Simulated scan of single mutants.
Amino acid sequence: MTRAIEMLRPSQIRSAFEECSLVYLPLGTIEWHCEHLPVGLDALTARDLCLLSAEVTGGLVWPALYYGTGGDHGSYPWTVMMESSEHLAPLLRKTLNRLAELKVERIVLFSGHFAGDQLDMIDQLKGEFEKLGPMKVLATAVNRFNIPDFPQTMLAVSKRPSLRGFGPRPSSSTHCPRRRTAMTGPTVMILHILSGA
């Protein structure tokens, strides 16, 4: 069975939550990452890491949100960036409220886009929902793991052949890192530990 909630029937969702009441909410954006990378890289990375993690931990993965905030590169080609979290936070807050009403016990807000504004937003949402209880919320991102040699950029991990094995690429842009690394195993294990599964 897939862990992507949008592909499941209601009976399959109920069955998955009887096994493990956990939802991963992957976040990203549409933004320029040079000519050799897809503009949806942040959300694709977050979604695939969440899917890989859900295969280990149980639970389900919400569809990725392809809007982000922060990073000061909203004018780059093929980039749509919200100027502040005021447009995104209400959508996420509504989603979290509804999942709480549906008695989901744990949520992982996982961002593939890790501009400071985006991380501040998910941390704030975590704080809000921790006060409400009983649902537990983890807010994290690909750059928050202390893994040796982990690049301070998006993590290029995917089952999609088009996203595998990014090597060195020449770049004149500050938002086009020269190296991407695939580190599926350690990241999935960390998400497994953090999710409390």
Results as ranks from 00 to 15, higher is better:
Phe114Arg: 00
Ala100Cys: 11
Glu83Leu: 15
Gly28Ala: 03
Thr95His: 09
Leu49His: 05
Leu99Ser: 02
Leu49Val: 09
Asp120Gly: 06
Thr79Cys: 13
Met135Lys: 00
Thr29Phe: 07
Gly167Glu: 15
Pro38Asp: 07
Gly70Ile: 10
Tyr24Thr: 00
Tyr67Arg: 09
Pro38Phe: 08
Glu130Pro: 05
Phe110Gly: 02
His113Gln: 14
Leu96Cys: 13
Thr79Pro: 13
Leu163Ile: 12
Asp42Ile: 08
Lys131Ile: 09
Ser111Asn: 00
Arg47Met: 10
Gly71Asp: 13
Lys159Thr: 11
Leu88Trp: 12
Phe110Gln: 01
Leu99Arg: 01
Leu52Thr: 08
His33Gly: 03
Val157Glu: 01
Phe114Met: 04
Ser162Phe: 12
Phe166Leu: 13
Asp117Ile: 09
Asp117Tyr: 09
Lys136Trp: 05
Cys50Ala: 03
Asp48Phe: 04
Lys136Arg: 04
Lys126Leu: 01
Lys126Gln: 04
Ala139Gln: 00
Leu65Ser: 06
Leu125Ala: 07
Arg93Tyr: 15
His87Asn: 15
Gly71His: 10
Gly112Tyr: 02
Trp78Ile: 11
Arg98Val: 12
Leu49Asn: 08
Lys131Ser: 08
Val142Gly: 03
Thr153Pro: 06
Val39Thr: 05
Asp149Arg: 05
Ser162Thr: 15
His87Gln: 14
Val137Phe: 02
Gly167Gln: 14
Leu119Gln: 05
Arg106Cys: 05
Gln118Val: 01
Val80Cys: 12
Ala64Ser: 06
Ser85Phe: 11
Arg164Asp: 08
Leu125Thr: 06
Val56Leu: 09
Asp117Ala: 13
Leu102Ala: 13
Glu130Phe: 05
Leu44Met: 06
Met81Val: 15
Ser171His: 12
Ser84Ala: 14
Val61Trp: 04
Lys103Asp: 15
Leu163Thr: 04
Trp62Val: 06
Val104Arg: 01
Val137Arg: 00
Pro161Leu: 08
Thr140His: 00
Lys126Thr: 06
Ser171Ile: 12
Ala89Gly: 12
Glu35Ala: 07
Pro168Trp: 15
Lys131His: 09
Gly40Val: 03
Pro77Tyr: 12
Met154Trp: 04
Asp42Lys: 03
Leu91His: 13
Glu86Asn: 13
Leu163His: 05
Glu105Arg: 01
Val157Asn: 00
Tyr76Asp: 15
Gly59Trp: 00
Pro148Ser: 15
Leu52Tyr: 05
Asp117Gly: 09
Thr45Glu: 09
Gly28His: 02
Pro38Ala: 03
Tyr76Glu: 15
Ser171Thr: 15
Gly127Glu: 07
Gly165Ser: 07
Arg98Ala: 14
Phe166Tyr: 15
Gly59Met: 03
Leu92Asp: 13
His73Tyr: 12
Pro26Met: 02
Gln124Ser: 07
Glu31Cys: 01
Thr140Ser: 02
Phe110Thr: 00
Val56Tyr: 09
Pro170Gly: 07
Arg106Tyr: 04
Lys103Trp: 10
Leu91Asn: 10
Leu155Val: 14
Phe114Gly: 03
Leu41His: 07
Ala64Ile: 10
Leu155Trp: 10
